[in-house]
Design a protein around this nucleic acid. Structure first.
Lengths: 210, 210
DNA sequence: TAGATTGTTAATCGATTAACAATC
DNA sequence: TAGATTGTTAATCGATTAACAATC
């Protein structure tokens, strides 16, 4: 199968959100035209996107909302359970541990780790915090697919390397570094980058008003 | 000035991060070629990007790290203080309130709000939580540039509308809805979208290995 | 059958990359 | 002056959009 471009992949969760919403509203079918209006995308683009993965529609009719939703859920691999671990249980780590939403879509925080001895042993948002030194053993004894990095910048790279060594192949990174590692899929979040772009557009807006 | 594309704007914080790093390492000058290797970008692209905002380099020499860093800081509007408020002090809201990093770059959490009576009046990460009903008054009495939305999906749109009405022109949105509003600049974060794309790429990786 | 809407090919647009003249 | 590297124009590439034949 031809490689699907990143732009398409990043639209999939958005389709998924809108389809869940439509299903909740009891809508049974939708055309690319209607969906394009709702989502602010081009109808051609929507059809092109779906056709990267096969034809989910019916000519002359449109798309069955439930079918399409299930297809995208399956493409995104959200119909399977994924064990995660969090390393770094500061503010962000604790928040993600409590982000109950994840479990609804098959993400489960199997364990959390920190180096801070005052945190180790405590329970936050239902997750017990273990000593970082126990990570390797835990990952060997349990199936862990996703490593979530919420450490300060200084420790992030070392944790990434340790995760890779014990077989974790997917990393969700919240530390402000760009991780690129052979054989490991990384999604960098970079919250501050996001805020900075907002700051840019705010000042741009002000300039236009002057 | 010609409108700068979103792709360029999203690279600015990344340049900024690398330049801060270089400055910290004591590097005085850098060429687009060296920077491209470090950042994994194309050198032409880097020069094109910088030239959207004017020529910061010196032919035959390269770029002064400090000068370039300061220019980008100024373009991103990070050399000014920005008051923010957070609405919704659940896990994510609390985490962002404590994300001390923001203040370093001029972002300051002036107040936080919630509807939950058990939270109102308490102090989290140094931020006192006020009742949501006090938001309008607070914004009128203080200069607030950025509204941060961390409410559940169901309340997000109403909060956005209230923020707009009391004059907030920039919104950093963590609720899982796409906000688009005339006259308001919105940066949608969508953490679960990000995790879903990681999930997709993880399954793709597994398929390739088979 | 006629109408609607998909799936897919072709055209357009914008972003990335290459090339090179300008110049420090 | 010669060498290096920018700033900028031109070429390429990929993503988006338009068009339309296929078909339900």
């Amino acid at each position: 199968m031809k490689k699907v471009s990143d732009a398409v992949i990043r639209r999939l969760p958005k389709y998924y959100r809108y389809l869940i919403e439509l299903e909740r509203e009891g809508v049974m079918k939708i055309s690319s035209g209607e969906l394009s209006e709702k989502m602010g995308l081009n109808a051609s683009q929507i059809r092109q996107d779906f056709n990267c993965f096969g034809g989910f529609g019916q000519q002359g009719f449109g798309y069955h909302v439930e079918v399409l939703k299930n297809e995208i859920q399956s493409i995104l691999n959200l119909d399977k359970k994924h064990n995660c671990i969090i390393v770094g249980m500061g503010n962000i780590g604790q928040a993600l541990a409590g982000y109950a939403n994840f479990m609804n879509e098959g993400f489960y925080i199997a364990a959390t780790f920190d180096v801070n001895e005052r945190l180790v042993g405590t329970t936050v948002n239902g997750c017990k915090i273990l000593a970082l030194d126990e990570m390797e053993r835990f990952v060997q004894e349990n199936v862990v697919e996703i490593g979530i990095i919420c450490t300060p910048e200084a420790h992030a790279m070392e944790v990434v390397e340790r995760m890779r060594r014990c077989g974790i192949r997917a990393i969700w990174n919240f530390a402000p570094i760009d991780i690129q590692l052979e054989g490991v899929t990384v999604e960098n979040v970079h919250l501050s980058d996001s805020l900075y772009t907002l700051s840019y557009r705010l000042s741009e807006q002000k300039n236009n008003e002057e």
